[in-house]
């Protein structure tokens, strides 16, 4: 049976630059609301196409995707 693993799918065109994902991440792992310290980074938040990336420290807990209100992040189980 194929193993599955978690993956966060990114739909950058739906990102509004609200930073809720970063705020949620930093509140869990840094105990403060601090986008600069989040494991998910949003660059060019207000450009035509924002750039979303994950730092190596991200453990794919999926809380960012759970609280993304615009459908830009989606937690999926994919086959390895």
């Amino acid at each position: 049976m194929a193993k599955s693993k978690k993956k966060i799918m990114i739909h950058e065109e739906k990102c509004t630059g609200c930073r809720i994902c970063q705020l949620m991440c930093s509140s869990i792992y840094k105990q403060r609301y601090s986008p600069a310290e989040a494991f998910i980074q949003i660059n060019d938040a207000y450009e035509i196409t924002p750039k979303i990336s994950f730092l190596d420290d991200c453990i794919l807990c999926g809380q960012c995707a759970k609280y993304c209100l615009y459908g830009a992040l989606e937690l999926k189980e994919v086959e390895e």
């Binding site: 609200c18 209100l69 615009y70």
Partner: peptide, 17 residues
């Protein structure tokens, strides 16, 4: 309409590009 953008922490994005 090109893209919807939001202020930080806003769940009701209403700004426009």
């Amino acid at each position: 309409k090109k893209r919807r953008i939001a202020c930080p922490s806003c769940p009701m994005a209403d700004k426009d590009i």
